[in-house]
Amino acid sequence: MSPTASRRKATEPATPEQRIEVRKTYKLYIGGAFSRSESGRTYKIHAAGRSGRFLANAAMGSRKDARDAVVAARDAFERWAMATAYNRGQVLYRVAELMEGRRGQFATEVAAAEGLTPARADKVVSAAIDRWVWYAGWSDKIAQVLGGVNPVAGPYFNISAPEPTGVVAALAPQCSSLLGLICVLAPIVVSGNTEVILTSEHRPLPAVTLSEVLATSDVPAGVINLITGRTAEVAPWLAAHQDVNAVDLAGAADADGLAWADLERAGADNLKRVLRPAGDGADAVEPDWSPVPDLTRIKAYLETKTIWHPKGG
């Protein structure tokens, strides 16, 4: 083709080769809205593996973003906790439906974040979606499995039932950017807690895409809030926050410059429920998230409420 023939008018569409990709701005997800960090900061996200190519400038969440996220989570708590278990189950299942629709994007991002082959990344996405479905199905079974009638010695009806503990701050796993994230995120909300998730520091992009799924799902604003940024910078503020009821320290493993003991110690000031990272002694390791879990992560954020009432004529 001659140069003149190939010269197109400016109004003609670009050829596929010519087309410049529209990049996404990766934002925080707080109270159902996408926002840049109030600090105005971003940090560079690179692909894992040899290429190490630049992927995006992620928002670098600050302590004030965390504070705002806790406020949003607290505001959302009562309604979410009081929703029927059936409703919560459907809302969460709907998230899996939407994830399925975006699985290509997730796979691309997971592959880039974790340095996986497309085939392997696809498997991880499937596992993540399936895990979400697994947890969603627990919403209306938790109370039956974990609660029950207690045969007290007296003329009283006595029943114990689990309830959500409140606002949970979780450090998402640093390595497993989607499956691990969901393994931490889903068991918190399925029982009615609301949460502030500090995403994987270096692999946050699948989490941001998940937030876009959440935004278009039926999960009420504020129930799940995701903050990208430096784990060691923001986590201590969440651990010390007096309106946070529990912390999940899964992401303390492999987090730069962070000792989980410090977070647990800070959490003691308001007696947060603490789910320690896996590992022995002071070591924290990120577990293999692929096996079907048990109820440990659900139970960690439940309170048992016991109700007594006399039985009389």
Partner: peptide, 17 residues
């Protein structure tokens, strides 16, 4: 609260969390 006593109070039992 972890224990709700309705129309009673300060009841305890080994079977009751």
């Amino acid at each position: 609260a972890g224990v709700i006593w309705a129309n009673t109070f300060n009841r305890f039992d080994p079977t009751s969390p």
